[in-house]
Design a binder for these strands. Structure first.
Length: 258
DNA sequence: GTCGCCGTGGCAACAAGGAC
DNA sequence: GTCCTTGTTGCCACGGCGAC
């Protein structure tokens, strides 16, 4: 039965095809954890997986180089976003210019943005947490959103991130142009029925909303061959581009990691 | 002390259907 | 038309542990 279960987690539920190595590994971990919990409660005498030989499939952890945009391509994509969904250009700009994760951009507040000391200079973002969509009933106060600390950091930890001049210009324009959430968050839904501005307490932009805007920008800014390629297929690839650009420009790897 | 493997925890993306 | 909700799949990163 255990072997049948292990075989089952190796296939996709949708089409019966082979699941990716990472998915198999993750499901195996969940399965193992559930059985360990059952063994701890004593319905099971031993952990049923322990006597079964199983080799995790190999998977690589490398970013696909073909997904990484160069600076000119990144600028073209941001310009395409600005033309279609101008309220989202600062959102994507934070990912490219400051290498933020989407959930960090969704949590970014105006008071966490340190403006440049001089005109055209560098500013800084002082990140304090992330905003994650966890599903209705599982979020804060029974909502669908949960506010968490920064990934892989203590709940109260903060992370300073340099904000280059192009990003500061995007943020300055965004703050001047759009209403913010009541707590000062910058990235909230702005389009209700009939494209009217909908004042809200500041619901974060759903992933499929900014995903749709990103696909439209790719169609506009890239060639048909590039659109079919992995190049900047996901917004998160902007973060890969940001982190790749810095070592190429001579910034030490340890500083980039920090 | 270093390195690689592995388990683990968590996030990102996307499609589809429904609500407004 | 836009956003919300849910389910599924893939990606990211850290830490423990053993081999060397």
């Amino acid at each position: 039965m255990i072997r049948k279960a292990l075989d089952t987690i190796a296939i996709r539920m949708g089409d019966g095809g082979a699941a990716s190595a990472s998915t198999i590994a993750r499901k195996h971990a969940i399965f193992s954890g559930a059985l360990k919990y059952a063994a701890g409660l004593r319905p099971l005498d031993v952990h049923p997986l322990s006597p079964v030989s199983w080799v995790a499939p190999k998977h690589d952890d490398e970013v696909d180089r073909k997904a990484v945009v160069n600076p000119a391509q990144a600028r073209a994509l941001l310009a395409a976003v600005r033309d279609r969904t101008p309220e989202l250009v600062a959102f994507f700009g934070c990912m490219y210019y400051a290498a933020l994760r989407p959930e960090e951009v969704l949590n970014l507040r105006e008071d966490e943005y340190e403006r440049p000391k001089v005109e055209g200079g560098w500013g800084a973002l002082h990140l304090t947490g992330s905003t994650v969509a966890v599903g209705h009933g599982w979020g804060d106060e029974g909502g669908r959103i949960e506010r968490r600390g920064l990934k892989h950091r203590a709940k109260s930890a903060t992370r300073p991130v340099p904000a280059p001049p192009p990003l500061c210009r995007l943020l300055d324009h965004h703050i001047a142009e759009y209403k913010l959430a009541l707590d000062g968050r910058l990235s909230i839904t702005r389009r209700g029925p009939g494209r009217r501005y909908v004042p809200t307490l500041g619901q974060p932009i759903p992933s499929n909303s900014y995903g749709k805007a990103w696909r439209a920008a790719r169609e506009a800014a890239l060639t048909p061959a590039q659109v079919r390629s992995p190049l900047a297929r996901r917004p998160y690839d902007l973060r890969h581009a940001a982190v790749s650009l810095r070592p190429n420009a001579g910034v030490p790897a340890t500083q980039v990691a920090e």
